[in-house]
């Protein structure tokens, strides 16, 4: 059953990557990064159980904690740019 879930996650990662490559705008790329980030976390958790490495769940935990920092940085980046554009 872990295999089924892992395959679904992998296919979703592929779909997200296609979205990242197609664009069209920059925000679609950010969206794809965010999707791939959560899917990677899930994949690590599922694979840790699939192969019986529960010690390695620390990795998924690390991603769950710090993955959103990148997207927050994107928000800050565009906020700074919006302020710089103002007179």
């Amino acid at each position: 059953m872990y295999t089924a879930a892992a395959l679904a996650i992998l296919v979703t990662m592929g779909l997200a990557l296609v979205r990242a490559l197609l664009g069209p705008g920059v925000y679609d790329r950010v969206l794809a990064v965010n999707m791939l980030g959560t899917k990677t976390t899930l994949l690590l958790a599922v694979v840790a159980f699939l192969y019986g490495w529960p010690d390695f769940l620390d990795l998924a935990l690390a991603y769950a904690l710090i993955n959103f920092v990148g997207v927050l940085a994107v928000l800050e980046f565009f906020q700074n740019r919006a302020r710089a554009d103002e007179p």
Partner: peptide
Amino acid sequence: TGPTASYALANAAYLSGI
């Protein structure tokens, strides 16, 4: 974190005029 990231993304897109 998931909804927070979604919020940040939507807000950044809105800020840039979409």
